[in-house]
Design a protein around this nucleic acid. Sequence first.
DNA 1: TGTTAGCACTCTAAGTGTATGAGTGCTAAC
DNA 2: GTTAGCACTCATACACTTAGAGTGCTAACA
Lengths: 345, 345
Amino acid sequence: MELSERKKKLLAAIVERYIATGEPVGSKTLVESLDMAVSSATVRNEMAELSNMGLLEQPHTSAGRIPSELGYRYYVDRLMGQYELSPNEKRLMEAKLATSAGDVQKVLETAGSLLSEMTRCAAVSTTPADEAAVVRRVELVPIGTRTAMIVMLTSSGILKSRVCKTFGEITVDMAESFYNIVNANFIGKPAAAMHIAKIQTLAVSLGEKSLDMTPLLVALADVAAMTEHTELLLEGQSNLLSYKEYAGNAFELIEFLRHSELLGQIFSGYANSGKHAPQVLIGQENRFRELQNSSMIFDNYEIAGRESGTLGLIGPTRMDYARLIPSLRYLTEIVGKMLSDTVEE
Amino acid sequence: MELSERKKKLLAAIVERYIATGEPVGSKTLVESLDMAVSSATVRNEMAELSNMGLLEQPHTSAGRIPSELGYRYYVDRLMGQYELSPNEKRLMEAKLATSAGDVQKVLETAGSLLSEMTRCAAVSTTPADEAAVVRRVELVPIGTRTAMIVMLTSSGILKSRVCKTFGEITVDMAESFYNIVNANFIGKPAAAMHIAKIQTLAVSLGEKSLDMTPLLVALADVAAMTEHTELLLEGQSNLLSYKEYAGNAFELIEFLRHSELLGQIFSGYANSGKHAPQVLIGQENRFRELQNSSMIFDNYEIAGRESGTLGLIGPTRMDYARLIPSLRYLTEIVGKMLSDTVEE
DNA sequence: TGTTAGCACTCTAAGTGTATGAGTGCTAAC
DNA sequence: GTTAGCACTCATACACTTAGAGTGCTAACA
C-alpha cells in the first residue's frame, strides 16, 4: 500500500497528535498545526481516503479521526522518525545500570525500573535462558550454628541463594560431605540433574549421616529449581493506572501481568527466534484478550553473541513508538554488554 | 457514650451490612434482615438518634444510612465480635510461612503476601528494627575469578548480600586481608560503623593493596547500609484496585504507598510504643491525606520478647474489621515466633 | 411512654427533549 | 486538483420529568 507524500505527512501528523493528546484529530486543527498550504476541505478529502483504506477510524460521525491499528502499523513500519537518545540520557542509563554490575537479576531489575520510569509503561524482562546452562559453582556459607546459606551460580550467570536450617549443628564434616556430593554429582551438569528424586537416592546412600544432610540437600534442590526456569520480572505496572484508556479495566490488565506465565511464552518464543530488532505488537496483534487494547515492544538482549533473554514494554496502543523503540533498543544493547561481561569469566 | 442494647444491635447490623454490600442501609431492609419485633418506623427513630450522635451519616436525604468514622470506631471498640480463625486456616498460614524459615526478609514477604491474599487489602511489613543490633557475621563468597559475593548477618537476623566485581583476580591473600579488616573493625559493632568514610581511611592504611581491596570494601559499606535501616515491604497493592471506593483515585493511593517512607514513620513510631495489640486507624484518624478514605490495622511482632517490627493492612474504611483484626493478630504472633527462632542462635 | 401506621417530603437515578458545536461529506465553482 | 459553502450527524451539556427508595413527622394506639 503506497501513499502519496501528502497522505503520509497527514497520517504521521494524526498519529503523533493523537499519541500526544489522546483526543481525536479534526481536519481544522490539523491544517493549523501543520500550517499546510491547503485548506481543511482538502485535508478532509485526504482523511476520508485514509479512512477508506482502513488507516484511520472515527469514534463517531462528528468526531475527528484516530489511527486504526493498521494506521499505527503503517506509521511504525514506514513513517516514524527515530528519536535519538541524547548522550546525557545514555550516560544516565549506563550509570544506573553499573550499580548492579555483577548480578544478572539485579541488572535486569534495574533495567526494568529504568525503562518503566522513562516510558511510563510497564516493563518486563526475562532472565537469560540457556538450555545448555550448567551448574558452575555451589557454595555452602555458614550463617549460624544451625543455619547455612546455599549459593549457586550457573554458566549463564544466574546466581541464586537460599537459607536453610538443619536439625543439628553444621560440622566441618558435613560441609565436606556436602561439597563432595556437589562436586561429584552436579558441577558441570545442568541444574535439572539436581532433581528431588536424585537428592533422595543420594540421601539414602549417605546412611546415618542422611538425617543431618537432608535439609541441606533439599535446599540445594530448591536452589537448583530456582535457577532452572527463566523468570519474568515486572516493573512499573502502576504506571498504567494513569492512562485514561485503562480507566476501569486497569485491574484486569495488572492481574494478567501479575499472574501470567503466558506472557513469558511470547517472550521466550521470540527469544528463540534469533531475531534481533525491536518487535512491535499493536493491539489485536497480541494473542491475549487482556492485551488487545495495548501494545507491546520487545527486544532480545545478547549475551556473548547469543540471544538470551528479552526486555519488553507494555502500554496503551497510543504509546509513543518513536521514542520508546529506540530507548528499548539502546537499553537491550547495553544490558547485553553488561551481562556478557558478568557471565564471561 | 452508652447506647441502649437495641441501638447497639442496630449499629452493629448497619456496620456489618454496609461492610458486606457497600450500599447504604435503609430502615426497611434492616428490619427484614434482623427480623426484629419492631416496625421500620421505630427503627427509623433509632437511626435518627444514632445520626444525631454522629455514629451514622446519610449520603443524601433519601438514601439509607452508612456508618460515620465515629460509628466504625464505636463498632470496633465495643460491638464487634471476634472472628475465630479455623484450625485449618491456622495450619495453612503456618505451613506457608515455614517454607521461608531462616530468612527474616523472606518470612516477612511471605507473611505479607499471605495477608494480602486473605484480606484483599494491601499488606505492609517492616523488617526488625534494633538500635542495639550489631554485625554478627560477614562472609566473602567467591563466585568467579573477579567476582565475589559479600554476605552480612546482624544480631537482629537481617541477612543481606551483594555481588561485587574487582579489578584483578581475588587472591587468597586478599580474602585474608578482608577477613582481618572485618574481624578487627566491624564484628560485634553496629553496622553504622561501616560507613564509607571509615572504609576510606581503612583503604588508605592498606597501602599498595588498596587498589585491589577497594571494590570489596565499598561493597561491604553498601551491604552494611542495607542492613542498617528498617525496610518497608509492600504486598498486594493491586487488591485495592478492585474496590469501588477507590475508583479513580487508586493511582494516587498506590503511588503514595510505593514512594512513601512516611508510612514507615507511623509504623516505627508504633513499634517503639511498646504496645502489643492490633491498632486500628479509621479514615481521618490517619495523618496522611492520601489515607483519609482508608483504614489501617497494624500490630507489632515480638522477637525474643521485644517489639521489633510491624505488620499492617491498608484498605477501604469499609473493611471487615471483625475478620481482619484477628487474622493480623494471629499472623504477627506466629511471625514473631518464627523470627525469634531464626535470630536466637 | 414507647410503638406504630400513614403520609408528605426529599433526593437520586434514569429517561426524555433540546440546543450547541465540532466535524464531516458532498457539490458546484474555480 | 483545490476550495468555499452548506446540509448533515452526533456527542455533550443542560433542563425537565418521573419512579422509587427512604426519610421525618404526626397522630393514634397499647
